[in-house]
Design a binder for these strands. Structure first.
Lengths: 351, 351
DNA sequence: CTGAAAGCGCTTACAG
DNA sequence: CTGAAAGCGCTTACAG
């Protein structure tokens, strides 16, 4: 049998078996041109019989499309990571793209080295905040390479689509909750990581809308860590700075604040309300359980892929996509539990 | 300037600029053959000047190596996932391979469809437990395709290397801890997910080594879920089956058991010791904090990549790699806390 | 050590 | 609707 091969079948084997040219096989594969139904059928039969799978590299080389998107991250980790990756993976499959992933890991993105991800092996890139520096982003953008930013907005004058959550309105709602429901008036603002400006806006508008004066001595902006936050709290308590609530840009920071307050003999939430951001897995176990904001990470990943494929296929996408985030009211703000605390926690099992 | 191009530079552009043939450029790129130092230098200069990056697809097609490994998973999630992926990613980069990831997501692996991951786009595959069925594994193995299994052993008579943890010895140690330190004698064995046989062995040897008779009415093997576990506990309590400890194959199940016992008025650990497996993130927050076994997921991922690249490059790897898992003694077994419980928890921050 | 040339396995105008 | 042929951008024997 001439078609019994000891090497993986190629398009030529299929063509031979189906009695057509390789061009015709290619057409039924890509669906690019009409093919007579009966011809197509015999080609499909040959493909099935030979268990033919087109070599990806050959298609890429000939078609100038890699059919692959890349995901560039600063590292693998963080509570948001798993759901976001799930969204990205689902989106990529949905859109028929392969997914190549790489971390940049604090090494400066070296142009001279062979780059792990770029024009040479992907059709477009999903770029997480802090993966690569502004210069590299500008370079890729200038080269016309499809890019979508995640949890970050692009540098000035750079029209790269990005996917973020509604930082401003969710912060505003949460701060308004503290004011309206718990009668808080001296609310500390402990910024959060980069890109937190919209949160500051939300904070300001919440206060302004309630005629509460903004006291900038209560605000620490920009990147903040768990320990500095705790130190700041201590410092204020020593200095008799008065406050009755703390808004925090990250649950991790909130847990540090909780700790510092409790160590100083303050009761949460009776004396001070504390609220976080991101709804980390551990937040429900803090004492008291943390009121925070839940971020739709999976949606973010999915939407980022959608925008990127739009960009790849049509050359343009939405300038920005803002996904709504949801208030998660627990007890650290002062609310009472709706249901008695129950075990076991409903978490995802390992297996 | 003839070398100022409006398209991405190719190897021909580099060759022209350096005044050599493309073969020579290729040689300095791959390092396959010796090249005169000065020739190599001028080639490197041309590469740098043109910002040349070799097209991945062309290399793959010409060299018959994709330089890519694939990771096939049933889904994205589980506590082990993030550290394991970190290990896989680090390993892939270390070994100079790209990483393509895909989930199979319960859809039967359809041979007629274009497969997402396989011989056509990777040099080898990392296969997580429950990603693909035995038949597909056998097929790939028979085709001589490099494969490494993670958290799973291969079907019978199939010599695929696999990376697992020391289930048997860690189970044995944990059960011995219950016996030796806490004087437990009636220890329930709540198997765990597939592949738990070595754990059963560990359990049996622990009892046998202490001359405690094995009571099979205390053992539930195989896949077990949180709720069935709780029901079994209730059932036993109602039926007056006596037991003073519960070994559980997963922390999630352990939390269900904890709940069931406490609901029935039993005190843990005073009346019954409960221990888990996997050291899930929430386990330290359970009341009492759960004694369990920590699994080196990152190491597992790293080691799996190492074995796979050995297989790809040398044609063989270790038959199996068993990584040690570590006892995490907390309070649900009956031990006292070494340090007072402190906040904040040291968890990974979102940002 | 280096170059000319074949070939990897596809896609895609170009004819017909 | 279909085929012959060029070409994608590399690597790798084969000569020299």
């Amino acid at each position: 049998m001439s078609s019994s091969l000891n090497h993986p079948p190629t398009i030529a084997d299929v063509a031979y078996k189906a009695g057509v040219s390789i061009a015709t096989v290619s057409r039924v594969l890509t669906g690019s041109c009409p093919v007579l139904p009966e011809t197509a059928e015999s080609v499909r039969a040959a493909i099935a019989e030979l268990k033919y799978v087109p070599r990806a590299a050959a298609r890429v080389l000939a078609s100038h499309r890699t059919n692959t998107i890349g995901l560039l991250m600063p590292d693998i980790g963080g509570a948001f990571f798993t759901p976001m990756l799930r969204g990205v993976e689902a989106g990529a499959r949905e859109e028929g793209f392969d997914l190549l992933i790489h971390t940049t890991q604090s090494k400066p993105f070296d142009n001279l080295q062979r780059k792990p991800l770029g024009e040479h092996n992907t059709d477009g890139l999903l770029v997480l905040r802090d993966s690569i520096d502004e210069e590299e982003i500008r370079r890729l953008y200038a080269a016309g390479f499809p890019l979508v930013l995640i949890y970050d907005s692009p540098p000035e004058n750079v029209g790269i689509p990005f996917v973020e959550i509604e930082n401003k309105s969710s912060t505003q709602k949460l701060v308004e909750h503290l004011i309206d429901i718990h009668a808080r008036k001296r609310i500390v603002f402990l910024g959060g990581p980069t890109g937190a400006d919209p949160r500051e806006e939300g904070y300001r508008e919440a206060l302004q809308g309630r005629d509460i004066p903004i006291d900038s001595s209560l605000m620490i902006k920009g990147e903040i860590d768990e320990n500095p936050a705790a130190r700041a709290i201590h410092h204020w308590l020593m200095g008799k700075t008065e406050f009755d609530a703390v808004f925090t840009g990250d649950d991790q920071v909130a847990s540090g604040v909780l700790h510092a307050l409790q160590e100083a003999g303050k009761r949460v939430p009776e004396d001070v309300s504390v609220v976080g951001f991101n709804d980390a897995p551990f937040s429900q176990y803090l004492i008291p359980p943390l009121t925070t904001i839940h971020v739709p990470d999976e949606q973010v990943g999915l939407e980022a892929v959608r925008q990127l494929t739009l960009l790849i296929r049509n050359g343009h996408a939405d300038d920005k996509v803002l996904l709504p985030a949801e208030l998660v009211i627990r007890q650290s703000c002062g609310c009472q539990p709706e249901h008695p605390h129950t075990f076991p926690p409903q978490l995802q099992s390992r297996s």
